[in-house]
Write a protein that binds this DNA or RNA. Structure first.
Length: 481
RNA sequence: GUCCCCAUCGUCUAGCCAGGCCUAGGACACCACCCUUUCAAGGUGGGUACACGGGUUCGAAUCCCGUUGGGGACACCA
């Protein structure tokens, strides 16, 4: 029985970001690899920014990626509740302990006062942290602040000397001088815990064994360790994962294009492909494998193979991994995925069996030409409707002379009593010979006339699917736009 | 400004911990060729990297120090 208990603890203030998805994935992979427990905890202590929509969206994104949790929202568990706003009584209890044991104190400094003092400190080259002014308040001063109507925050008292260290799972020995740890806010004036406080209480109570999170949390870690010790919790092991950056080496964000799991889904990515690509950002199997099913990832995953260098998100590589996963899919699976897309685009209707069978044939002859589900409507529309789009870039293949040849082909096809791929090919080649042109001079224009594309399946297979009538009609009057 | 993290092809990375097997391997992208009725796929080949400077050592991509560069944190945000 494994003692691994890991968690993903997003705050519901936006979509599930690529960085968050990667963090969730690594925790999940570790839990599954170790037969441990993966916990989802929602950190909604910021009343201003947390939304129920975001909460729902994050859950949806995790499910889409296939990252299922063993304890958490909509699931429950022995360590709940798993939503921080429902745990306020617990935080109040631990806040009281801080007060009782002299590990915390009320602070009445107003935000604007703090901001000003911080700016001054930075200007003078001093550490910008809290100046500990309220550490030594007299009862008299306290009463005066209360009378002014100031609502206090609770600050956690950090040690004045010594060092706090831990062995980071990815960085190794890491230490901070305690003097750089300022007395941070544990409980806000609205009574909600801050991130650092809520995380310590919850990780302690939920018996979290390993915390895998982004590098941007390194400086929070010593502050949290001090509290873990103060409360007598066994501190989890910490691992700080390298950041994911945009092509400009800045933190990845919406400016860089798709940055949330949902956007990748909408762009036609397969969830298992995104998972695969994300796993390769900050982790490697050590051999030269790159294409993994999620099951294979679980088997291969190891904390030892985490790396510590920030990684630039490469959309091209992500697309490539997606294409590899598309190749792995049997036709039947592609049909399952493509069918709803066709329905959504109005290219077919629920219960239209003929269309569904046709879809299977088209996908079959398309072979590996799909690298993305998003390609489906543009590439397949011409098999289901006359209202398909034409690629203007390819129009040059259908010039005046080509148009004439295509018309002759239409005439030849019209007379055919039976129309199959083989027969269509024979007729076309014979015509090419008679016209003394290369078969390609007939094939390329014909493809464009039939599909509006220069890219597509074998022409004759496509003709067979389209059927004689449609082929003849389109060859006679090719769409121009 | 203070503290922290990082540094191998354009990008993701292997190699680093236990120095020699590295004239540095793989992948994406790019280029060329092959296959082919097109594109894609596939095949073959190609160019491109150990940031810099010192040390330690018989020997350093690998260990140490410094420099430079990049990133992060410094909120009653998480």
């Amino acid at each position: 029985m494994s003692h691994v208990r890991v968690r993903f603890a997003p705050s519901p203030t936006g979509t599930l970001h690529v960085g968050g998805a990667r963090t969730a994935l690594f925790n999940w992979l570790y839990a599954r690899n170790q037969q441990g427990i993966f916990i989802l905890r929602i950190e909604d202590t910021d009343q201003e920014r947390s939304t129920v929509e975001s909460h729902a969206q994050i859950l949806r994104s995790l499910r889409w990626l296939g990252l299922d949790w063993d304890e958490g929202p909509e699931m429950g568990g022995a360590f709940g509740p798993y939503v921080q706003s429902e745990r306020r009584a617990i935080y109040a209890q631990y806040a009281q302990r801080l007060l009782d044991e002299g590990l915390g104190y009320h602070c009445y400094c107003a935000p604007d006062e703090l901001a000003q003092r911080r700016a001054e400190a930075m200007a003078q080259g001093r550490p910008p942290g809290y100046d500990r002014r309220c550490r030594t308040l007299t009862d008299e001063q306290r009463r005066r602040f209360e009378a002014e109507g100031r609502a206090p925050v609770l600050r956690a008292r950090m040690p004045d000397e010594g060092v706090t260290k831990w062995t980071d799972l990815v960085h190794g020995e890491t230490e901070f001088q305690n003097t750089v740890l300022d007395d941070w806010v544990a409980l806000k004036s609205d009574g909600f815990p801050t991130y650092n406080f809520g995380a310590v209480v919850d990780d302690g109570l939920m018996e979290i064994s390993h915390v895998l999170r982004g590098d941007d949390h390194i400086s929070n870690t010593p502050r949290q360790i001090v509290l873990f010790k103060a409360f007598g919790f066994r501190a989890p092991k910490f691992g700080h994962l390298p950041m994911i950056l945009g092509p400009d080496r800045q933190r990845l964000s919406k400016r860089h294009g798709a940055a949330s799991a949902e956007e990748f889904r909408d762009a036609g990515f397969l969830p298992q492909a995104l998972v695969n690509y994300l796993a390769l950002l900050g982790w490697s199997p050590g051999d030269n494998r790159e294409v993994f099913t999620t099951e294979q990832l679980i088997k291969a995953f190891s904390l030892k193979r985490l790396n510590n260098t920030a990684a630039v998100f490469d959309l091209e590589k992500a697309k490539h991994i997606n294409a590899e996963h598309m190749k792995l899919l049997p036709t039947s699976a592609k049909v399952e995925l493509a069918w709803p897309i066709l329905l959504a685009r109005g290219l077919a209707h629920e219960g239209d069996e003929a269309a569904r069978i046709r879809l299977g044939r088209v996908i079959e002859i398309m072979g590996n030409r799909f690298s993305n589900l998003g390609d489906i409507p543009t590439h397949l529309a011409c098999y289901f409707t006359e209202d398909y789009s034409v690629d203007p870039q390819g129009a040059s293949v259908l010039d005046e002379a080509a148009r004439e040849r295509v018309h002759m082909l239409a005439a030849a096809y019209q007379k055919l009593p039976v129309f199959t791929a083989k027969i269509a090919e024979g007729v076309l080649r014979e015509l090419a010979t008679n016209l003394q042109v290369d078969a390609g001079d007939l094939i390329h224009p014909a493809r464009y006339a039939l599909s509006g594309r220069t890219v597509g399946p074998s022409l004759f297979a496509a003709m067979e699917v389209l059927g004689q009538k449609t082929v003849v009609a389109r060859l006679r009057r090719p769409k121009v736009s």
